[in-house]
């Protein structure tokens, strides 16, 4: 799955950095092509999104009662949240790739590439985020069409929120991938993290209906930041600055942590 060459090496031409952005872009492009060469992941996550939206959300919204809101409100609420939850879920996949590369020895090959460690790590995080965005766009379009979101500025702001979330979750996933050693443990830890940040968030249900112990932590979930900010952009056509700031802080913290841990793993603690 991860043992794919960089685009430059694939054509047998020596890869030389023509500018500072080029190696980062090449590493990012490799990660994007890795995802699209493994359609199984795309199929399973797409299937999950479709069933969640068109079966679960559709049926459960018939039962949900939110005082002062029309019966369609919960479906609309859930639809936006499921896009946010799905992008978080797909962004976690970069961690599986990194873990597998280390297990299979592909990482050794990657480290021989003429790319600095810093560029390598930024490229990995960027690739993880971009591929999650490419993957989520069709689902975002489905929800935008269903809910008649057509304001270009709102759509752009929502896309920015989704990208920030993807970038941050990629950092979080890299942090976990390089910190956990056992394959089984890694699998379960990542699944738990995915579940915790999505379920204890405002992506799938309004905070007013959560039990107090969940409502106390849900506002601090990165998925909540992204869901609140995306909903404000799409439905209220406003920028939700507190959520946006929270999202940026999440990106900075976990991208920094992910980079630091990855550096430590690659260079045994020497920060190059």
């Amino acid at each position: 799955m991860s043992s794919s060459p960089t685009p430059g090496n694939a054509s047998n031409s020596p890869t030389q950095a023509s500018g500072p952005a080029s190696p980062i872009l090449q590493i990012a492009l490799r990660d994007i092509s890795v995802l699209f060469r493994t359609p199984w992941i795309i199929i399973s996550r797409s299937l999950a999104f479709i069933i969640q939206l068109f079966v679960f959300a559709f049926l459960i919204s018939e039962l949900v009662v939110i005082p002062g809101r029309p019966s369609s409100y919960f479906f609309e609420y859930y639809a936006v949240g499921s896009v946010v939850g799905t992008i978080a879920s797909i962004s976690f996949i970069i961690g599986y790739d990194i873990f597998e590369e280390a297990e299979e020895g592909v990482l050794d090959y990657l480290l021989t590439l003429p790319v600095s460690r810093r560029q390598f790590i930024i490229g990995r995080a960027l690739g993880g985020a971009i591929r999650a965005m490419i993957y989520i766009i069709p689902m975002f379009v489905i929800v935008a069409v269903l809910e008649h979101f057509n304001n270009p500025a709102s759509l752009a702001a929502a896309v920015l929120d989704l990208f920030l979330l993807a970038f941050g979750v990629t950092g979080l996933s890299i942090t976990v991938a390089v910190s956990v050693r056992s394959a089984n443990r890694f699998d379960v830890v990542l699944a738990l993290l995915e579940l915790a940040v999505s379920r204890a968030s405002t992506a799938l249900y309004p905070i007013a209906f959560m039990p107090s112990y969940v409502a106390a932590v849900a506002p601090f979930s990165p998925v909540s930041f992204a869901a609140d900010s995306t909903r404000s952009a799409l439905t209220d056509v406003t920028l939700n600055f507190p959520s946006l700031l929270g999202l940026v802080a999440f990106v900075v913290i976990f991208l920094g942590l992910g980079s630091a841990f990855y550096f430590r793993k690659l260079e045994g603690g020497v920060y190059a």
Partner: peptide, 18 residues
């Protein structure tokens, strides 16, 4: 922990929504 999240977060919240 997964079970706990399913029950005490998701199920508890849906229990209040329905």
């Amino acid at each position: 922990a997964n079970f706990g999240i399913d029950l005490f977060v998701t199920a508890a919240t849906f229990g209040r929504l329905i």
